[in-house]
Design a protein around this nucleic acid. Structure first.
Lengths: 225, 225
DNA sequence: GGAATACCGATTGGATCCAAAAATCTCGAG
DNA sequence: CTCGAGATTTTTGGATCCAATCGGTATTCC
């Protein structure tokens, strides 16, 4: 990590906007008014505009010339496609992690997954954070920074991601999530690369399917009012 | 394709700058002066700045606050890591293509690869274009737009990519390239998904290794003068 | 009464202005 | 002659200005 790279205001601005979209404070499909964002974040429109370009490149928002930016409304088929790719990459990460992970690493994974356990006392957002940490840890153990980066970018391409879903969705999904993580840990411990990949792939695909369904339900609801 | 989405100037500007970097007109490590770019492209600094933010997000350039943007100089280890990811994704595309490709599709691939053949008469850049087309065709046959997009983004993350290398490098590599493509086509024709994936993966990894070596030689040369 | 059109408010987009920061140059001291 | 402090120049960054465009509304014509 850099010791603080003379932080660029526009990057911070982009991060702030992204956070507001990811948290749901700015809802899916919402218009992003430059003047409004500028006032809220206490800067002029210039850094806002540049930040929006960054988010546009990331795919989180769509910008129509002379009409402004809106938070992208992903189509369910896009979610499914994307999670097929994500499953492949996370599977790859998991396979690589098998030969690189240490005993301490396995302990870290178990600790992270404990916070995902349905019974765990979780303040707002902690389940999301815990779920993220579990996956992020594995990306780290894979020992390929680019791989971690690509997965991260993919995850930030949708206004609502799996982590946010795990938190708000029902206990059933949370329990499934927990047990799938356990199976992944088991495979990593055994050292079975093939199984580790397969388990992670299935895990991500199932999560993606939940997310796609969520978007389907959402668009149906929005239609009715 | 859209009938021309009211083309945004900043997107065109970003594309123009990217093209100049990819072609080598703007060399690796070069400073990108906003005023100079503005004059060259005939616009003011405002769209330039937004375009640079887009390229920054893509990873093609690096922006240091108050010091400006430079064309990124990839480290060889980064190239290797990236091509491991690319190999995985292209392998996935190839595997998926097996069950989706048609006879016409195979014909297209053969035609594209004919232009890669060492003996082929190639005007400047045509080998690059042909190599790109071969891969792009397969991405299309994979039937997953997100997958194609991610691979495209990865490919545009380096100022010098494999396609550019294939063209300028020696005949030996070009011939290897051609024969590896042939083996991939054969696997696709046979319908052997496993082999198709493996061949493509090996092909991309070998290309990535060439690219990494190229960057190694380059940095060594630059040091000496 | 309905549809086409012209106007108006709101918002984005490009250009310009000025301040802040960094690199370079100059001058002086050791 | 070298090193360092200060001034100068260059370049980026944020704010602001004005034109271009879009959506909506009202008006007019058929």
């Amino acid at each position: 990590m850099e010791p603080t790279p003379a932080s660029a205001l526009v990057d911070d601005t982009a991060a702030a906007i992204r956070a507001r979209i990811m948290s749901g404070e700015i809802p899916i499909g919402a218009q992003l008014r430059q003047a409004e964002l500028a006032k809220t974040l206490g800067v002029s429109r210039t850094p806002i505009r540049e930040a929006l370009r960054q988010l546009q490149t990331g795919g989180l928002i769509e910008v129509v010339p002379h009409r402004g930016a809106v938070v992208r409304v992903p189509a369910p088929w896009d979610v499914r496609e994307t999670y097929e790719v994500r499953a492949e990459l996370e599977g790859m990460a998991c396979e690589r992690a098998v030969s690189r992970i240490t005993g301490d690493g396995l302990a870290e994974l178990r600790r992270a997954n404990d916070a995902v356990r349905p019974g765990a006392i979780l303040s707002d957002g902690s389940s999301t954070a815990a779920n993220d940490e579990f996956h992020t840890l594995i990306h780290g153990f894979a020992g390929n920074e680019r791989l971690a980066k690509v997965i991260k970018e993919i995850n930030e391409a949708f206004p609502r991601n799996v982590s946010a879903l795990v938190l708000q969705d029902n206990a059933r999904h949370r329990e499934d999530n927990f047990h799938e993580h356990e199976r992944i840990i088991a495979a990593l411990e055994t050292g079975d690369a093939e199984t580790a990949r397969r388990e992670m792939q299935a895990h991500v695909l199932s999560a993606g399917e939940q997310l796609a369904r969520w978007y389907e339900r959402r668009s149906a609801t929005v239609f009715k009012g």
